[in-house]
Each structure stands twice: as structure tokens, then as C-alpha cells.
């Protein structure tokens, strides 16, 4: 089979096209939000929030509500809880994150284990199943990604100022605390819409890796977001084809592609740096 056929063949399947669109959108959303996350040093919060979505998903399932809604409520609640407790408790942020991260996930596991005769697949929550995405889920996901990108487009200057120099931004009258909370909400929403594609365990990579890779390549923040988004889309498409061709789990294939790209760029930039030095 020639390479063109290899690329075209899976496009004959509706489920593959839906997965392709969904993964690419998720790739962009994660990379854009991830650029702020990486520069604020908040990757660990991303991991915590994704695990914290689990009990919300289980509760929504038990009550017969939309799963994405349950996940969103739990994720946003935990994200804002981390922000509020960090300000008030006097404990270090990573301690609070560690406590809430494991505590919420344990609640999810406990609730999950209490469901009698549950036939759904835990594996899909944990590791994603983008090839199983329905048309209506894909439309909802697209709408959420567009909304997310519009919010960031509207408040881009403010978010950048508050991320780069919170003191200067605060003195200039920007509502730094509310912008921080907004960023936490954006992280939570991004994670929830990404769960179907890559699952709870791997979503942090979709957020962190493209942005961290881009940071090594650029000198301007505007470029960083564009490059990160490009990496996010490329990895989503490449990962999905890999998953199809080699019969691998789709989320893992996407994340492995991103990780490989990160390592290549790391090697390339450190070699270049050594030559210049």
C-alpha cells in the first residue's frame, strides 16, 4: 500500500474523521491553555484537576446526568479550591494540590466501586477513547473549544500581563486574583473536554508538553502560543494515524508523539546551545 492510501484509507470511516477533528481541537485548546500553565509553573495543578474530575464523572453517571457536566463541576470546584486554600491556609500550594488530587481521585474510585454491576469501562475514563466519540459529543466539544479560545483571545493581554508580572499588573489595576481564578477555570474546562480524547491520566501531557516544547523554540509569547498549537494539532493527527496503523490506544499514541517531539527539540536546542557557548 502506498503512503497516500495509508493516509486516505482511515478517512473512509466516520468514527476516524470524528476522532481526528476532536483530537485536533483538543490539541489546540490544550496547547493554548498550556502555554499559560507552563509559564506559571502550574503543571501539577493540571494533573490534580484532571484526577479531581473523576468523582464528578462517576456521580453524574450514577444520577444519569451528562458525564461532562459532572466532570466540569468537580474539576472547576477543585481548581478554585486549590486557589482559595493556597491563599488562606498558609500551606504550600503543592501540599494542598497533593491532598486534593489524591483525595478527590480516591472519592471517585470509592464511588465507582460502589456501583453494582457496572458494565461501562473505567479504562475509557482513565485513558480516553476518542475513536468512540459520538457526533453530538464532537459538536459539544467543538463549541466548548471555540468558546475557550474566544475567552483567551478577549483577555489575552490581561492574562499575559498577570502571568508574567503579577505585581506590575496588580499595580496597574488589573484584577490579578480574578484572572488567576479565570485561568484555573479555563484549565478545568480544557481538561474536561480533553478527557474523552486522552483520559484523566494523560491529559496533563497534552497541556504541558506542546507548550514546553514551544518554549524552547521561540523568543516571543505570541510565537509560543502559535507553535504550541501547531504541535498540539500535529501530534493529535499523527498520534491518531499511529494508533490506527499500529492498533495502539489513541490517547497514548498522541502523548507519545508529543513526548518524542519534546525530546528531539530538547536534544536539538541543547546541541545548538553547546555550539554557541
Amino acid at each position: 500500500m502506498n503512503p497516500i492510501d495509508l493516509l486516505l484509507e482511515p478517512l473512509a470511516y466516520d468514527f476516524f474523521v470524528r476522532a481526528l477533528v476532536a483530537s485536533a481541537l483538543v490539541g489546540v485548546a490544550c496547547a493554548v491553555v498550556g502555554s499559560f500553565v507552563v509559564l506559571k509553573g502550574m503543571s501539577f495543578i493540571g494533573d490534580a484537576v484532571s484526577h479531581a474530575a473523576f468523582p464528578g464523572i462517576v456521580i453524574a453517571y450514577m444520577l444519569g446526568l451528562p458525564i461532562i457536566l459532572g466532570g466540569a463541576v468537580a474539576a472547576i470546584g477543585t481548581a478554585l479550591g486549590i486557589g482559595a486554600l493556597t491563599r488562606r491556609s498558609g500551606l504550600r500550594a503543592d501540599s494542598i494540590i497533593g491532598v486534593l488530587f489524591a483525595g478527590m481521585f480516591a472519592l471517585g474510585v470509592a464511588l465507582f466501586s460502589s456501583i453494582p454491576n457496572y458494565v461501562g469501562d473505567l479504562f475509557h475514563f482513565l485513558f480516553g477513547d476518542v475513536l468512540g466519540i459520538s457526533l453530538s459529543d464532537m459538536i459539544a466539544l467543538s463549541a466548548l473549544v471555540v468558546a475557550l479560545l474566544l475567552v483567551i483571545r478577549a483577555l489575552w493581554k490581561e492574562l499575559l500581563f498577570a502571568t508574567f508580572d503579577p505585581l506590575g499588573a496588580g499595580a496597574a489595576g488589573l484584577p490579578v486574583r480574578r484572572l488567576d481564578d479565570l485561568l484555573l477555570i479555563l484549565i478545568a474546562v480544557t481538561i474536561v473536554i480533553s478527557l474523552q480524547a486522552v483520559g484523566i491520566v494523560l491529559v496533563v501531557a497534552m497541556i504541558t508538553t506542546p507548550a514546553a516544547t514551544a518554549q524552547m523554540l521561540v523568543k516571543r509569547f505570541g510565537q509560543m502560543i502559535l507553535v504550541a498549537a501547531l504541535i498540539g494539532v500535529t501530534a493529535a493527527v499523527a498520534g491518531l494515524y499511529l494508533s490506527y496503523a499500529l492498533d495502539l490506544a489513541s490517547g497514548a499514541a498522541i502523548v507519545l508523539f508529543e513526548t518524542a517531539l519534546f525530546l528531539v527539540v530538547l536534544l536539538f536546542t541543547s546541541l545548538r546551545g553547546r555550539r554557541a557557548a
Binding site: 493581554k157 499575559l160 500581563f161 508574567f164 505585581l167 506590575g168 496597574a172 523568543k219 516571543r220 509569547f221
Partner: peptide, 27 residues
């Protein structure tokens, strides 16, 4: 009011260009 933080409080590895920082003043 413009506030200039101590140099050691700034993340100088932040991928941002000189004109981008100055443009923040217009925000």
C-alpha cells in the same frame, strides 16, 4: 501608576520580547 518589580522577581527565561513587555504598559 506603574510598578517596576525587583529584577530578581522577574522570570528572565519567559519567552517574551522587549516590545511585548513594553506593550503591557498599554493594557
Amino acid at each position: 501608576v506603574a510598578y517596576v518589580p525587583q529584577a530578581e522577581q522577574v522570570d528572565w527565561s519567559f519567552p517574551i520580547a522587549v516590545d511585548e513587555v513594553v506593550a503591557m504598559g498599554r493594557t
